[in-house]
Nucleic acid binder design. Structure first.
Lengths: 200, 200
DNA sequence: CGGGTCTTTGAAATAGATCAAAGGAAGTGG
DNA sequence: CCACTTCCTTTGATCTATTTCAAAGACCCG
């Protein structure tokens, strides 16, 4: 199943018939308030599961971030699979547990961190997404942000203006460098990490 | 295992050896930032599982809210149980999924809702915790808050002062009534519900 | 090269935090 | 049974981080 950029393929609250695995590209998950306020609850990419937070209906909407390729597993087939391979059930629980742990951190971010701390945490998350060898002890790390500022803002519970201002401040302070909107270089990973934890 | 009021029995980040089920009383789960800021990630009560958000180490701390009684299941025994009763594994995943769905809503609350909306949502959550017959279509609902304002604040990502002010405002507006700190009567459930969804 | 979209920057407004103090409830000991 | 203390909550006044409103700049793509 190939989903073009920006196309929504899970409607929040709709009956949850399928499981998804992201094969290629990226996806954003979100919930909406009636007046349009949006909270992005996570980004998923190659290898990630989608649909664990769903019993009878989906607790979130989902939309492709760039062109995305997904595998769709109707719940019925999933059932057949877990019947045949009982380990899969365990694996799914593990996955759900991991997600749950991430959620705890995200609650703390949204409930208790300042805008600077949120952005710093976000940048650290992006670093940890990179293949490990790239950055272990590196004095600088480089990567591209695949999502627009709007998405970063809705992920961090901020406005795009605040996101932009904080990133500009980080740049001004020599903590990061920005080239052409998407390309980020973390100049001082240690300090960004410290800010993320609320240590400065 | 009986835990006295206020006693912490899970240390955030400590190795996760056990599963817990709350048998009686209540428990609060939370994460901390180094400088002491706290986010309560959930309250658990009779029947609730604890420790799903844990792989090798706990992603949260836990503390009794009043005297609480718990069953402790070392992971090894749990393993034996799931081996013997494969359905349990499925049950645990279901539980994790349910938690995950709740988390999505909580992210939206912390990331996008106003203080009024947060308190209204919190009150609605408490209503839904009551046994169903008590309030279906009831024009008023009554209950006791088992936690102090500090906990409500840390759960909603606010300060105690804001919690207090918003509750006073609700009271002034005739939406709720408060007797002696803990006892709450929801006078206009419909309107509280509307506020919770951001509709006024 | 021009129009549209996204981002950055600036100025003003505001929701909620912080600081400060008063009010209430609950327990303690005389 | 009543001061007295302590802790928690409420209320008030002020402050500030972030939002909102507004406009200018950058980037993209036909």
């Amino acid at each position: 199943m190939t989903v073009p950029d920006g196309r929504s393929f899970i409607e929040e609250g709709s009956p949850a018939h399928d499981f998804f695995v992201v094969t290629d590209g990226r996806v954003k998950l979100f919930t909406l308030l009636p007046d349009g306020r949006r909270q992005i609850t996570g980004f998923a990419e190659g290898g990630d599961f989608l649909g664990l937070a769903a019993s009878t209906s989906y607790a979130f909407g989902a939309e492709a971030l760039g062109t995305a390729v997904l595998c769709r597993f109707p719940h019925a087939s999933m059932q057949r699979l877990t019947d045949r391979f009982p380990n899969l059930e365990h694996r799914l629980r593990q996955e759900a547990s991991r997600e749950l742990s991430l959620m705890q951190a995200r609650l703390t971010l949204l409930g208790r961190k300042t805008a600077r701390e949120r952005l710093a945490t976000f940048l650290m998350e992006r670093i940890h997404l990179l293949a490990p060898p790239c950055h272990a002890n590196a004095s600088q790390v480089e990567f591209d942000l695949p999502m627009p500022r709007t998405d970063i803002a809705d992920y961090l519970g901020l406005t795009i203006e605040t996101v932009s201002r904080v990133l500009s401040a980080f740049k001004r302070e020599g903590l990061i460098n920005i080239r052409g909107i998407t390309h980020i270089t973390i100049m001082q990973p240690e300090r960004i990490s410290a800010i993320a934890e609320g240590l400065e």
